[in-house]
Amino acid sequence: MKTKNTFINSALPRLNGALGKAGLSLVSLAAFIAIGLLPFYAGDEYIIRLGVSCLMYGALAMGFDLSAGFIDVANWGYAALMGLSGYVSALLYANFGLSPWLGLFAGALSATLLGLGIALLTLKMDGLFTALLAWFVGIILMSVVTALPGITRGVLGLSVEPLFDTPWSTPYYYVIFVICLATFITLRIVVKSHFGLAFRALGQDMEAAKYSGVNPVKYRTINFLISCFIAGLCGAFYAHFVGILTPSVMATRNTVQILVIAYIGGRGSIWGPLMAAFIILPVFESLNSMLELKYIIYGIMLIFVMIYYPGGLSSLIDWIKGWFAAKLKDKRTAGRS
């Protein structure tokens, strides 16, 4: 009994503290181990493919959340950045034989560069301008890709070299698992550092942050570029996983899907959007044969969350945690007296 108590009182918090430095906590570590072992206990190929899309949309939604939740910039070109990266990686292989593994990073770099252009033009202004310009750029990129069938094969679809020779999804699952875990850890470390503090300050009140010595353009650009890089990495992975790219990957409705996951998960929490991806995608998987119905429900959920619960799932869970902590405290003080 005594040893158990000392374990709970000293060892656990110390472990938690050590994990905290790596951006993890006991709960998230356990969740990631459970997710990582999925291919072992879910023998079904279908479930593993579903897991791949949960991890991919989870990583995308976390990247989206970095801009939307911290500096209050909704990146409406997110799907377009994804698509650009996919096309760059696929075309680099097709024309210059660049390995798809390097292509992942080349694609992500191209998305980051496009993001830099958008950032330099608009990040000194209100977030609305960034959202609009990113959206415009996305629409135009989509029409350019459609209008150049000689290079991109347009709506016919460009076939993309797969990452592995196997038709099974398990190796892909581990690639996107590593991407997702790395995204999670990086973003958690970034938002806990002084960068995160600057991001939050800029998101809440740009003027006030500016007069406290936070350079708005510099920090907002850094934030935006990290977010774009994640979009690019996932986009290139998506291209090599699915094996065929059409311009529809850049459509606004794809951005809205990411955005719904991010906002329902909860702004500014990073883990909320990841959790939301693992809840929303499996729940609506059965509606994939009726996409319109699925999107209508997405729209209703987005409006509902925005009006009645703008904090999303993460603030709901924070509230539950707070409630339990308060109960526990009551119990302890009652026991002592």
């Binding site: 909704a74 955005l259 996409l291 119905l293 729209g299 209703i300 409006i303």
Partner: peptide
Amino acid sequence: FLVAAGISFIIQN
């Protein structure tokens, strides 16, 4: 902005 996006998404679909 997001509520409007939701409305647009619903009407379109």
